[in-house]
């Protein structure tokens, strides 16, 4: 009895909503902290380093899987609940006045959640997927000027002080020794597996370079065609997130059975979280878009 209750009952479904929701709040906080680096000076280095850490660190990996599961569970559970809830009132009222007794956010969690889910999917297509699968992902470059010489472009290596002259690196899939560069020196380095730098001749790995997520991001929001649209889309999604959190944060505690003298504090923190986090998230695309 007890075990099946923990899976099937309406209350248990709410526990899971609450737990996954709260975990996703933690994720949001972490994600925000990383993203805020986009607003710092020298953003590109810090941000790309952070992106590398986030995609490679084993602990982060576990967390990220938990996040994926949470998102999926939160969404699927939410959809199930919504269908059940719709079924609980097969005949609707002719006249309703819901604003008299409940907030907008609390009544529209499913709609807001759907907006957020759509956002997450597009967001992941735009960034996460490219980070993970794009063969032609841009790599982080830097321009180093040595006195008296032409400034030169280097790929930034992940090791301390490692730089690889762009001219020296053959990108993956790039045809070797094409007629076009016959004139030039054969490239000594090549990129394998998107970020691994190999000595082309000896076929020995010499280091790693950064994926340039920063560039992807900046380009995305500054795209002459869709940049403005993307920026607006992100702001709207963050608005939806704000409303979702406005209700969801404190609601999760209620679902978990926490309603006591700390509840006013929880509500306050929840609302502050619901305003601050999406606001800061939204500032980033706005900043990027409008500071070309």
């Amino acid at each position: 009895m007890a075990k099946s209750a923990l899976l099937k009952s309406s209350i248990a479904k709410k526990y899971w909503m609450a737990l996954t929701g709260l975990f996703l709040c933690l994720f949001l906080a972490g994600h925000l902290a990383g993203n805020l680096q986009l607003l710092l000076p020298n953003a590109s280095e810090k941000f790309n380093a952070y992106a590398l850490f986030m995609t490679t660190n084993p602990a982060v990996k576990i967390l990220s899987y938990l996040t994926y599961i949470s998102i999926i569970f939160h969404a699927v559970d939410g959809i199930l609940l919504t269908f059940q809830n719709r079924a609980a009132r097969p005949v609707r009222y002719v006249k309703t006045n819901p604003a008299a007794n409940s907030g907008f956010a609390s009544r529209n969690m499913a709609v807001l959640g759907t907006v957020i889910l759509i956002f997450i999917v597009t967001h992941m297509v735009n960034f996460w997927a490219r980070m993970h699968f794009d063969k032609n992902i841009p790599l982080m470059k830097t321009t180093i000027s040595v006195k008296g010489q032409e400034p030169r472009e280097f790929y930034v290596g992940t090791g301390d002080g490692q730089y690889y002259m762009v001219d020296q690196v053959a990108l993956e899939g790039e045809a070797k020794d094409t007629t076009a560069n016959m004139m030039m020196m054969p490239k000594q380095l090549k990129i394998v597996n998107r970020t691994e730098v190999y000595n082309a001749g000896a076929n020995v790995k010499v280091g790693n370079v950064y994926k340039d997520l920063h560039k992807i991001t900046v380009d995305f929001f500054r795209d002459p065609k869709v940049g403005l649209l993307a920026t607006l889309g992100y702001v709207i999604a963050m608005l939806a997130l704000a409303f979702h959190l406005w209700h969801g944060f404190q609601s999760a505690f209620q679902s978990l059975g926490i309603n006591n003298k700390f509840t006013p504090t929880i509500k306050f923190v929840g609302r502050a979280f619901a305003i601050i986090v999406p606001l800061l998230f939204a500032i980033i695309p706005l900043y990027i878009h409008f500071t070309k």
Partner: peptide
Amino acid sequence: VLNMVRQMDEEGFGNCTNTGACEIE
């Protein structure tokens, strides 16, 4: 609590979204 919640679910009531409307009304 287990039995009452089970019966509640069987009756076809919806789930709690914590809108608080019930408390007000």
